[in-house]
Computed example of a mutant assay.
Amino acid sequence: MKSRDTYNKWLEAAYIEFAHSGPDFSLKALAEKAQFPRATFYYHFDDKDYLVSELLKFHQHKCQQCQCDLQKTVKTLIPDLYTVLFKYKNNVLFHQQLFLHGDVEPFYKLYRESNEATIRLLLPFIKAHFKTNKSDQEIIQFYHILTDTWYIRLNTHQLTEDSMINLAIEIMENTLGLCSASLTLESTLAIKK
């Protein structure tokens, strides 16, 4: 049991380190920061590559938990989506790192698959928010662009529920004019009032 506890502690600490620093974090620094004997790392993980593969599985599980929470909680796109995302803020930061390091195929694949599942789950709320009759595929493509832009611009140093909502609204306001879909700005501006 203690061995499993140590494994989980390493995994949790590495998850947070990856979320804040990206995949180039140092095992030595991680061990020092988490106050773990470095030798215990090699008892549980062959090397850093194996740890990262375990982190991807762990993140996939966390994404599924978040999606279940979204399914139970979201009644309107804004603010409900961001209330749940803030609850999972380390997941959001980890997910951002996957996007920022999307040149690594497994990172981008997990990022994209998770987003696809989340967007499909949120599709009725997206349609209601934008009051559009565009096809599901058009909305999904558009929302992928919004999501990617949101992760690019997300300020990890000032991460609050309000900052996430404000960033989403700003991106929607600036992007809607570029989109050929008949998405309305009125629904986004109504939120600010």
Results as ranks from 00 to 15, higher is better:
Q71M: 10
Y143D: 13
V92I: 15
D46P: 00
R120Y: 04
L81T: 06
K131E: 15
A117D: 14
E116G: 01
I140P: 03
H157L: 12
V92W: 00
V92D: 03
K134C: 15
H95K: 08
D49S: 05
N133Y: 01
F58L: 03
I126M: 11
L93D: 05
Q97F: 02
T156A: 15
G102V: 03
N155I: 13
E105Q: 13
K131R: 14
T73R: 01
S53K: 03
L121R: 02
I126A: 07
N133H: 13
N155E: 14
H101W: 10
L70E: 03
H129K: 14
L110C: 07
L110V: 15
F130K: 12
L85I: 05
D136Y: 00
T156P: 02
Y111M: 08
L55T: 10
F142N: 12
D69F: 07
V104S: 06
D69G: 00
I78A: 03
C66T: 10
I145V: 14
T118L: 08
P106A: 06
K48W: 01
E105C: 04
D80L: 03
L77H: 02
F142E: 14
L123D: 04
I152S: 01
F99H: 11
E113C: 06
L81E: 06
Y151I: 07
T83S: 13
H59M: 11
S114G: 12
I119Q: 00
L122S: 03
Q96D: 02
Y50W: 09
P106W: 00
D136C: 06
D80T: 03
L56N: 02
Y88L: 06
S53G: 04
E105N: 05
K127E: 13
T156W: 00
D148T: 11
P124H: 06
I78W: 01
L55V: 05
Q60V: 08
L81G: 04
W150Y: 11
I126V: 15
E105P: 02
T132S: 14
T156D: 06
R112V: 06
T118A: 12
D136M: 05
Y151V: 09
L93V: 05
K72F: 08
N133F: 07
F107Q: 00
L100A: 13
S135W: 11
L85A: 11
R153Q: 11
D148W: 04
D136I: 07
Q137S: 14
Q96E: 10
D47Y: 00
C66N: 09
K109Y: 02
F58S: 07
F86N: 11
V92A: 04
E54T: 06
F99K: 07
Q67Y: 10
E54W: 01
V104R: 05
K62I: 13
T118G: 10
L93N: 05
L146H: 11
L70Y: 06
K62Y: 01
Q60S: 12
Y151H: 13
G102K: 05
V52N: 04
V104K: 03
H61G: 12
K87R: 08
N91H: 09
F142M: 15
I78Y: 01
Y143E: 12
K62M: 08
D148Y: 00
D69Y: 13
V104I: 14
T132I: 09
E138D: 15
Y88H: 09
V84L: 01
C63E: 15
F125H: 15
L146G: 11
